[in-house]
Nucleic acid binder design. Sequence first.
DNA 1: CATGATAGCGCG
DNA 2: AAAGCGCGCTATCATG
Length: 580
Amino acid sequence: MRTPVSDGARHGWVALGTSGERVHAVVLDAAGVTLERVELSAADFPGWAIERESTSAPRWVWNDTPRWYPRLLRAGLQVSRCHDLRLSHLVLAASDLVVDAAALRAASRWHAPPYEAVVPRQPALFDWDSDTARDELPADVDETVAEFARQQAAITQSTDPNRLRLLTAAESAGALVASELHVAGLPWSREAHEQILHDSLGTRDTTTGIPTQIFQLRQQIGELLGDSSVSLDSQPKLIRALHRAGVLVESTSRWELAEQQHPVIAPLLEYKKLTRLLSANGWAWLDEWVHDERFRPVYVPSGVVTGRWASSGGGALQIPRQLRSAVHADPGWKLVVADVAQLEPRVLAAMAADTNLADAAFGRDLYAGIVNSGTIASRSEAKIAMLGAMYGATSGESGRLVPRLRRSYPRAMALVDSAAQTGENGGTVRTWLGRTCPPPSVDWQLAQAQASDSTASEAEVARARRLARDRGRFTRNYIVQGTAAEWALAWLGDLRSRLARLPPAPATERATASGTVFGRQAHLAFFLHDEVIVHAHESQAAAAAEAVRAAAEAAGRLLFGEFRVDFPLDVSIADSAAKE
DNA sequence: CATGATAGCGCG
DNA sequence: AAAGCGCGCTATCATG
């Protein structure tokens, strides 16, 4: 295992490409001048890369991290830095900060969907259409070098090269982390999971497969509704059965059912809860997604329009709290579970340089700070108000409370209000580092144009107004959610290099079996917007926890410099990831 | 039989 | 009471 060299002077770049079975590398100096061209067989490539990393720690330039990095990891190489051309292209071609994006946009083959969408897990299910084939990502090394040059030029000539350099580096570091998370996997106890399933669902009937608890609830609900054959899984049928029993609901959603007074409600809500567990994370999920005590979801960096990650397969970003105790460290290892308290409002305070809000948050619970300042009476109201301000609430308790925040924190509120106004007017907004939201759709623009015509009907005007407001709420939230995603990338990127610098754990049986770079090393095991889980040998858990905190501080400084805002973490070191 | 839309619920 | 952002996934049901 090679430990990444810590960042210091610039180490130059190595651009990679393929041609058939051959790998081509072009070594560039820091100014982008070609120093050397190397051609390798696919088999020789990992060894060559390991050598290169240890001698010069270059920034690896490649078309798409998931097409290159997993095999290097399996060969034992954790690289220190890369430039992901696909992700960077998507950011730069759309960014307001780029002065002339024509050349980038003309290179349309670089505008490509995530690898998972192109190479699906079950290829048979995918229907290749001509567009996808035509837009396949370039792999040739000269095309790689050319795109890299275009991107460097776009950054250098932009109105804010520093931000775009940070953003593309953060995106690229995130791409490395995403591959590492997949290869390492989330430690998952099959036994603990099965215990949870058994405790809540009971045992599966040997012939029907229906768990006893669900079977019994179904019987009980049938009796209470006076219809033993009622279908509980079909909303229309369930609604009709409820109506016959005098429960006058318009939907079968949980909140509406919960309002009703009827003996069938409690068992019905329980039934819905249990069937949800069964279908989303039951025995079938366990068999499909957990192997060798690891859950290995596919993370999709930048899969969300705001820059947040998405995931593909297994519902990685929706693991229910109920199952978190199944996330369990290996014997002799620990989980360091850390999440940021109120990331988004802190990010908003820093973006707006709103010292009142940053001070209210400093060193404590942000909502308690708002209460403390006398702005709002209770913590729960403060939270509702702040979420309403960032999401664009107009009615209800939230809408009522937002004006109070506007009085106490005018700078922060003006920033989100202005983003909303820009969006309503059809404009674009951008995050702190320059990720720019998409322009309004053709349909949206058409609706606005029609509504401004003197012959427009009332319905057309109302629809255009509603669409404009919808877009305003989107852009309002975009700047905050997107900048929070950037903070999280900076946190992850800094953390991965800190963890890589920790000395390896003592040799264990598992280390020899796992066959990857992470067998003996503290490593990231999970990431979810504002939370990380690190898997570390017990001898290193405390150092890993300290690295998590230090990385959060570094991320705050990297984005917001000396502005006085902090990002406090809740950190725990435990065998499982269970909360509370 | 396959595809797409919708409801509902899980996560931040 | 159920609004106000961003997602993925499952089941059902209408449509091709």
